[in-house]
Amino acid sequence: MKVLQIIDSAYRCTIEEQDDPAVWITHAMKGAGADLDVLLCGNAVNYAVKGQDASGLRFGEIVQKNPPKLDNDIARLIGKNINVMVYTEDTAARGITEAQTLPGVRRVSRAEAPTIFSRYDQVWHW
């Protein structure tokens, strides 16, 4: 079974979790043998932007260590041979250029969705 993971909710609880839960569960299921690809849309296209830095937070005397590194987490998905796509309409609307996007991320149009979806047994929207 091959599943397309659509991720659009972004930066929702990433500081507390030190990652994005939808990206994390993709890694975890891949580790359990799952056959998955990822389509980033909406605000989650920003996860594919290079150079993110969520360091430096402190709450009282607690310094927040190990901040989330969403770009690194996406790059690691690609390193696991997971096909990561972004909608170009959503990157363009947010001013994200191809040069700012991680290498290996495939840029696709929303018009391609029916064709893309047809390649998967199931489509899971997180």
Binding site: M1, G31, A32, A34, Q122
Partner: peptide, 10 residues
């Protein structure tokens, strides 16, 4: 674990 979700789905 998430592995259980994947196994169930299959």
């Amino acid at each position: 674990t998430p592995g259980d979700l994947w196994n169930w789905a299959q």
